[in-house]
Design a protein around this nucleic acid. Structure first.
Length: 275
DNA sequence: AACGACACCTGGAGGC
DNA sequence: TGCCTCCAGGTGTCGT
């Protein structure tokens, strides 16, 4: 579910509540795989008396920097979300892990589909995580020329390239479809057949779409909530995603849904002609 | 290298 | 109402 804007929002709203707080070392876990089958007491021992000093996002990962050398690292996958509440509050349906804080609160991770993962990483592991991901699309350091050069290296279709986190970090199924609709490029277009001008357009579209989504707190189709429980509103601005059969806002042709790289894919065949 | 199939999970929606 | 199938914002692995 959550892509860059949703993860950013989830990270920010978590950070707002817990930066400055200190873990007390208690970890209650009812689905072991969420913490990669580590013993909760091992994680707890590593977090005990450690202060949360800041938050950030890398790709679709939420990172809480800690007063130890470690980093608290979480991936929401499809349905994960954080809830901060009082320790005595009742457990939440689909709650998988709860981390105690010394101020009497808990950071709880709720995840219907159990795909989400939480780790405590040392600097080496964090560096590996970072290295496994491509550039951040909203980082000005990424230029269209660089992106073009990367896309020239393959004849894979452009959509799976946008979904490949090692190529560009944080784009997922929704914003890939939205960006390609804005760019008027068919998702199956071989990446190395895009001109520099088209790549500039794709990168610009990605940035426009992601920034708008960030402004609107992300998209909520079903499960997504930020760490205060609030929904996003970007779904009201979708141009292609989830608009099957509805008229294209540019030309009126009904949006069609197909499958590309095993993912539901929405596009306008008039505006985004088959390559 | 690249692609498809499938795995990991639950629950909501829609068809009958 | 009940049952069944399909589908979902992500990613990892395996086989061809």
């Amino acid at each position: 579910m959550p892509e860059l804007p949703e993860v950013e929002q989830a990270a920010r709203t978590l950070g707002e509540q817990v930066v400055g707080a200190t873990f007390d070392g208690s970890v209650r876990c009812s689905w072991g795989r969420t913490i990669d089958s580590y013993d909760p007491s091992v994680i707890g021992a590593r977090l005990a008396d450690v202060k949360i000093t800041g938050w950030r996002r890398r790709a679709k990962w939420i990172l809480l920097s800690l007063s130890s050398a470690d980093t608290f690292v979480a991936h929401l996958r499809m349905t994960g979300r954080f809830v901060v509440c009082q320790r005595e509050d009742m457990d939440i349906p689909q709650q998988r892990v709860a981390f105690g804080l010394t101020d009497g609160r808990e950071i709880r991770f709720v995840d219907q589909r159990k795909f989400g993962r939480i780790y405590v990483m040392d600097p080496g592991q964090l560096a590996e995580l970072d290295a496994a991901h491509g550039p951040e699309p909203l980082d000005d350091a990424l230029t269209a020329v660089q992106f073009f050069a990367r896309l020239q290296q393959t004849q894979r279709a452009i959509k799976p390239m946008l979904l490949d986190q090692s190529v560009i970090a944080g784009v997922g199924n929704i914003y890939a479809d939205e960006s390609l609709w804005h760019s008027q490029i068919h998702p199956l277009t071989p990446a190395n057949r895009l001109t520099l001008g088209q790549v500039e357009l794709v990168l610009q579209s990605i940035r426009t779409v992601l920034r708008q989504a960030l402004t609107n707190g992300g998209s909520t189709l079903r499960d997504y909530r930020d760490s205060y429980g609030a929904k996003g509103t970007q779904q009201d601005n979708f141009q292609a995603y989830d608009r099957t059969g509805l008229p294209c806002y540019r030309c009126g042709t009904p949006i069609v849904k197909t499958v590309v790289a095993q993912r539901g894919t929405h596009l306008c065949l008039a505006c985004q002609p088959v390559p």
